[in-house]
Amino acid sequence: MVDSKQQWKAWLYLAPAIVLLLIFTVWPIFNTVRMALLENYSGLKAAAGMQFELGFGNFVKVVQYKRFVQCLKNTCLLCVLTVPISTLLALLVAVALNSIKFLQKGLQTIFFLPYVTNSIAIGMVFAAMFNIVGSFYGTENELIVTAGIINNIIGFFGGKHINWINYGSSYEANMFVMVVYIVWNALPFKILVLLGGLQSINKQYYDAAKVDGTPRRRVFTHITVPLLSPMLAYVIITGFIGGFKEYTSIVGIFGENMGPPDDAGRLNTMVGFIYDALETNSQGRASAAALILFGIILVVTLINNQVSKKRVHY
């Protein structure tokens, strides 16, 4: 134990971290809960000296918004679609990368590039790739001359151009683009973690499997995947958490409209909903939505944990 006379020193050394945490983490969390529980809380009105009653009105309002249900649906759909796809792809890429010697470092760098690239910039590139006409805001009456590389490729193979993200595009097409983009964006981190995991697996397991004449598929399913399960659990859990916070990717492709020009807000997400509420100075509603999102992430993570306890070996 530290001498009690010396304790002020310990507090002194801890002070910078504690002060910063109090200001930027503890207080905001506390404040979010406070604002969420004050009926119709608004920062502007509060500044004018208005008093608010306690209550759950903000939560009720949030849930009753039609837009909120849409946002929740989009968010969940993106999570459910992108996390399994990106995890599976990352696993395959990592295993493939791990099994080659030649060019491994170079390919690793290429696969890692999306991670260090600005997601808005990537979004704009994707928007250009999936574009159908020269203009983003093209209408039905404009001449359809695709400038997007994806449609050009489809056209090259004789397929019909698809309206991915422009005026009059379908929700399914929009979602497809989002899923492709998010999966691609999520790959590098997952590949990195899984490759690290693969490289830390003792080679002798593979030698032992070889001595026993284990077919390659069985080596993958019975040795590689179980030994990688802690890493897999990690990327799946962080993948879900990241998925529920999806926002910038939508902005990257569709702009602040959060949807094609003819249906703004169609692809909005939970985080987008929170930002919208903040913009209209409804901090109470934004806080309530943030807490609901927090609750969802908490529940999903707990479920993930529970599942991985059964599935993650050793």
Binding site: Y205, D207, V211, I223, P226, Y314
Partner: peptide, 19 residues
């Protein structure tokens, strides 16, 4: 190849599958 030789090999650190 190894699997067709009909050998049993015990590794230095056993290489038992931990899962």
């Amino acid at each position: 190849s190894t699997e067709n030789r009909g050998i049993g090999l015990v590794f230095q650190n056993y290489a038992l599958y931990p899962h």
